[in-house]
Amino acid sequence: MKAQDIMIKSVICVDIDGRLPDIKKIMENHKFHHLPVTDNGKLVGIISDRDLLRLISPFIDGLSEQPRDLDTLNRVAHQVMTRQPIAVKAETPIEEVLAWFKRVDISCLPVIDEEEQVIGMISWRDLISHATF
């Protein structure tokens, strides 16, 4: 089995200059935990829901909201993304995908083509749902 056999093919990516409120909305509306970040179509980073939780003030829209809390929304993707994310090709064997999950503390892998464009995503949930016992 290869990455292309279990990857999710309909992937939404955000531009390197995408703003955090828009990114947050995409993640909430689609219930995503990760979003690939692209520059001219090429994968350059990834943003996780944990990144947003860490960066966006929890006081926004609350009684304690301060101007500095709203300033956390003025960031763009390239300021908060993980750069040079680990990615695999469609032909990558599942064993190698599993090895990445075990070796590095990540929970998803973008799947890219020869031009480094995102063509899919694989999460640990995808691996579990395709596991054969």
Rank of each mutant, 00 (worst) to 15 (best):
I56P: 13
L35E: 01
H30W: 07
P21Y: 00
E115H: 11
R83K: 15
V11K: 06
I94D: 09
S57Y: 11
L70F: 08
V111T: 11
P67I: 06
D69M: 09
P67T: 02
V14I: 09
K2A: 02
M1G: 15
M1E: 07
I56E: 01
R68A: 14
K24P: 01
K42M: 12
V37S: 05
D22I: 03
V88H: 08
I23Y: 02
T72W: 06
I26S: 03
C13H: 06
L109P: 03
E65Y: 05
Q4F: 13
M27Y: 04
S57F: 12
Q117V: 03
P58L: 06
F101R: 10
S48K: 04
G18L: 04
H30L: 10
K24M: 05
K24E: 03
M1T: 10
I47F: 03
K89E: 05
D39I: 02
F59Y: 12
L20S: 05
I112R: 10
G18S: 14
V80D: 01
D5C: 12
W124R: 15
V111L: 12
L109I: 11
D69A: 03
D49M: 08
I56R: 06
V111Y: 07
L73I: 10
Q84H: 13
I26M: 08
S48F: 03
I106E: 01
N74A: 12
I112F: 10
L63S: 13
K24F: 05
L63A: 14
M27W: 01
V76C: 07
E96F: 15
K24N: 04
L63H: 10
F101H: 08
D15H: 14
T82F: 04
I106T: 07
E65W: 02
T92N: 04
M1D: 08
F133C: 10
V80H: 03
R83M: 07
I119P: 01
S64E: 09
P58I: 07
E116F: 04
L127V: 15
M81P: 14
G62C: 13
L109N: 08
S129V: 11
R75C: 13
E115R: 13
H33I: 02
I23L: 01
I26C: 04
H33G: 15
C108P: 04
F32V: 06
T38V: 15
V111G: 12
H33L: 08
A131L: 15
K2E: 09
H78F: 14
L53T: 14
L63K: 13
C13K: 11
L52F: 07
T92Y: 03
T72C: 08
S57P: 15
P93H: 11
I26R: 01
I16S: 11
P36W: 00
L98W: 00
I8G: 15
H34I: 12
D113Q: 11
I6K: 11
G18P: 00
Q117T: 07
I56S: 10
A131V: 11
D39A: 10
G45P: 05
F133G: 12
H34D: 07
